[in-house]
């Protein structure tokens, strides 16, 4: 009983906090729980690319993430591909910096070659899917002007609805609406609009699990409304604070990814 009261009190405090939050703070908090939870993160990711006529392609990978600083700061990503067979054993590493271009390296196993790759466009497609690099690792908070447009329930969850409008014309979309769950701060839905106000892409969080105390979206979908193509992502397994070390994110392990971390 005492515990319940405490929980209610904390919830009330959180809610009060939430009420007082500015739209920037809402997005900042949402990004922190969406892209930065834990010290590190490991997931076996199944990515299904589904065309308008139903043809499916599967990308299966292990994704490792290590936070270098606080939420919003530098991160290191490591990806190992299991499928499709053409890219089996391929690895990909990204050093994400909040205020400059990311560094990206690719390992091509067929010729045992590690190369830096030029992909400065964070809104480019991630491995051909409907998700962009930004969708995978986050968009800089300062790149958009944020506005709290309303608060409403989505699938029974109380949400903030925040409109984020890119400050620069270089973005692929005109603006974005995010439904952010007041309880978990995770985005439950995002709608991307073009400059004429037409919806072009829709993100939905389809399943949320609490893993080691971190609310985690374990199934999600990004739909391209223009092409009819969609990408479904699910985690076959996931874990936080597994003890990743910075030394893992190196050329040595790009070439020889340790079984311990990729399985």
């Amino acid at each position: 009983m005492k515990r319940l009261v405490l929980l209610l009190l904390i919830s009330a405090c959180l809610a009060a906090n939430a009420l007082a939050a500015s739209p920037e703070e809402i997005i900042q908090k949402s990004q922190a729980v969406f892209f930065y939870p834990g010290k590190d993160f490991k997931a076996r990711v199944m990515m299904k690319l589904i065309s308008a006529n139903g043809q499916e392609r599967l990308r299966e990978m292990t994704m490792l993430r290590l936070n270098i600083g606080a939420a919003g700061g530098e991160q290191k990503y490591f990806m190992y591909f299991f499928q499709p067979a053409e890219v089996k054993d391929m690895t990909f590493m990204v050093f994400k910096y909040p205020e400059k271009d990311d560094d990206r390296w690719l390992f091509v196993p067929a010729i045992n070659m590690v190369r830096r790759i030029a992909m400065q466009d964070k809104q480019a497609s991630f491995v051909g899917s409907d998700f962009t690099y930004e969708d995978v690792s986050g968009r800089d908070l300062a790149d958009d002007a944020h506005e709290l447009v309303r608060e409403e329930a989505l699938n029974g969850k109380a949400c903030f609805v925040v409109k984020s409008t890119p400050k620069a014309d270089s973005a692929n979309h005109g603006h974005k609406l995010s439904w952010i769950d007041k309880a978990t701060w995770l985005p439950m839905k995002e709608e991307y609009y073009d400059r004429t106000g037409k919806t072009i892409r829709v993100f939905t969080a389809d399943e949320v699990q609490v893993v080691k105390g971190f609310a985690t979206i374990t199934r999600r979908t990004m739909r391209n409304l223009q092409s009819g193509h969609r990408t479904e992502v699910s985690y076959a397994s996931q874990d936080y604070n597994v003890g990743l070390e910075a030394s893992l994110f190196s050329e040595r392990f790009l070439r020889q990814p340790p079984k311990k971390w990729i399985e």
Partner: peptide
């Protein structure tokens, strides 16, 4: 020198 000029064009 390598550069991506637009999405998926390098």
């Amino acid at each position: 020198y390598q550069r991506q000029f637009w999405e998926d064009f390098t």
